[in-house]
């Protein structure tokens, strides 16, 4: 169980890092206060963390979807021995 958690988290972090790399803004001039260097660091950090969460939630729910399938198949096999 623990190994699964670590694998999922690693995949989520890796995928988020790749998404972050692809998401590099085309244009930055830091001209406006909401585009300052400090706020950009905040955006990158918060965005990355949220992305990790979303990837993690996706992997978890997809895993459960397959678990459900296993359980239902098992139930069906029991129905007709």
């Amino acid at each position: 169980m623990n190994a699964k958690r670590i694998i999922r988290l690693s995949i989520a972090i890796l995928a988020s890092a790749l998404s972050l790399a692809l998401s590099w803004p085309y244009w930055r001039d830091f001209g406006y206060w909401a585009e300052s260097h400090a706020l950009w660091r905040v955006y990158l950090a918060v965005g990355f963390l949220l992305a990790v969460y979303v990837f993690h939630a996706f992997l978890g729910s997809l895993g459960t979807l397959f678990e459900h399938d296993e359980i239902e198949r098992g139930a069906e096999r029991e129905d007709k021995p």
Binding site: S19, S23, A34, E35, A51, L65
Partner: peptide, 25 residues
């Protein structure tokens, strides 16, 4: 402002996830 370029890119990179989920469903 330019910060939308980052937020929009990052979260639309995630937009296929529900669709992949639906595909498997």
């Amino acid at each position: 402002p330019e910060f939308w370029q980052f937020w929009g890119s990052l979260f639309s990179a995630l937009e296929p996830l529900p669709l992949i989920f639906c595909f498997w469903h």
